[in-house]
Every structure is written in structure tokens, then in C-alpha cells.
Amino acid sequence: MTRLGDLERAVMDVLWDSVPAASDGVTVREVADALDGRELAYTTVMTVLDRLAGKGMVQREREGRAWRYRPAATREAHIAQLMLDALDLGGSRDAALVRFARSVTGTEADVLRSALAAEAGLAEPGRAEPDQARSAGAGVSGRIEEPRATGPALDEATDR
């Protein structure tokens, strides 16, 4: 997945924050107006949206002479994909997952446990429902990928 520059991220934040999933999207002018504190030229915003479309980050549809833009995926799906991409950077994926799991707060750990239980079909009483767990931690495909079983046990992986 493509990492975003500062301006691209600001434009995506506008889209994620203001475009409901059922919406037809927003125009370049609407995005430019939402970025009013940045004092950007209309053509700059148009170029950024065009590049984001080329990267597959936004979908666009012609409306007369203008385009309407909407995010191709949710913010959560984008972040989940970035996390998965980071795991693929090299080294021990298992060790990285264990270190990450040990670094989250208690509430975040509860969300992860619930999501994994829901994915396994073992939703625990008092935990988030499967749909809530999926939206909290699902990837672009809507599924939480399990660690690859290619290395030693997780505890051994972190000792290296």
C-alpha cells in the first residue's frame, strides 16, 4: 500500500471525515474549501486528488465536466494495510507481532482478543460483537490475517 505525503493525508482526512459510504462523493472545490486553513490553489487540490486516484486511494466518477471523489477504502482498512505492510518489511513477523501485542494498552489488547475470537468464531461473552471486532481491526479484505506459522514459537521469536 502506498504511504501518503502530508498533503495527500490531509485530503484523505477530508474524504474520510466528510464522505459517507453511500455518498456520491465530493468535488475538488468541496475538498479545497474543507482545507481552507491551508490556502491551496484549486489546481493543487485537483492534482492531489488525481494522483490519489492513480494510486487507487480514491474512486472518482464524472459528473458533467467535474469529478466527484470518494475514498476507495475506509481509514481503518488503510491503517490495517499499512500495519500488514510493515510486518512484511523483513525480519521475524512473529517477533514483530509479539512485540506489538506486548506494547498495546489493556483496552487495545481487549479489542485484539475480541477480534481474534470473533474471527475464530469463538466470540467471548461480554466482548465486542464480531462486527465490532472486525471494524476495529480488520484489514482491507475485512479479515484479520493470522500470523504465518513459518518460524519457532512466538516466545522464542522474541528472545532473539
Rank of each mutant, 00 (worst) to 15 (best):
P147Y: 10
T107I: 08
V11L: 00
A95S: 07
E156Q: 04
Y42L: 02
R93Q: 01
L84D: 10
A128M: 06
T74E: 11
A72K: 11
A22C: 13
E61H: 12
V26M: 00
T158V: 01
A133T: 03
W67T: 06
L52P: 00
D13H: 11
V111F: 02
T2H: 13
T43Y: 12
D24C: 14
Y42K: 13
R93F: 07
Y69N: 00
T150D: 07
R29P: 03
A41E: 10
Y69I: 08
V14D: 04
V14H: 01
E8Q: 11
I144D: 07
A133W: 06
R3Y: 04
A115D: 01
T105V: 03
R113L: 00
F100T: 03
R9F: 13
A153P: 12
G25C: 07
E156I: 02
S18W: 12
V45T: 04
L84W: 11
D24Y: 02
V31G: 00
D13F: 05
D85C: 10
G106D: 08
A138M: 09
T47L: 12
G139D: 05
V48S: 09
L122C: 09
D50K: 12
V58A: 05
G37H: 08
H78E: 11
E146L: 15
M46I: 15
L89M: 12
A133P: 03
A10D: 02
L49K: 00
M46E: 14
A32W: 06
A53R: 06
K55S: 14
Q81S: 15
M1N: 07
L122Y: 05
E63W: 13
T158W: 06
D110K: 10
R127N: 10
V11D: 01
A123E: 09
A118D: 01
A149K: 08
A53E: 13
A80R: 01
M12W: 00
A32L: 09
M1L: 09
W67P: 01
G126R: 09
H78N: 14
P20L: 00
V98A: 05
E63H: 13
R113Q: 14
G142Q: 02
D24G: 09
G137W: 01
D13C: 06
G37Q: 12
D36Y: 05
G64F: 10
G56I: 04
L87F: 01
T150C: 04
T44V: 04
S114D: 04
L84I: 11
R38A: 15
G56C: 12
V26Q: 00
A10L: 08
D6K: 15
S18N: 13
S114L: 05
R60K: 15
A109Y: 07
G139F: 02
A34F: 02
D6R: 15
L89I: 12
E124I: 03
R29T: 10
A133R: 10
R99K: 13
Y69L: 01
G139N: 14
R38M: 01
D94R: 05
R3A: 07
E129H: 08
L122D: 10
R62S: 13
G25W: 03
A95I: 08
M12Y: 11
G142R: 00
R9H: 07
R3H: 11
T107L: 07
W16E: 03
G90Q: 09
V58F: 11
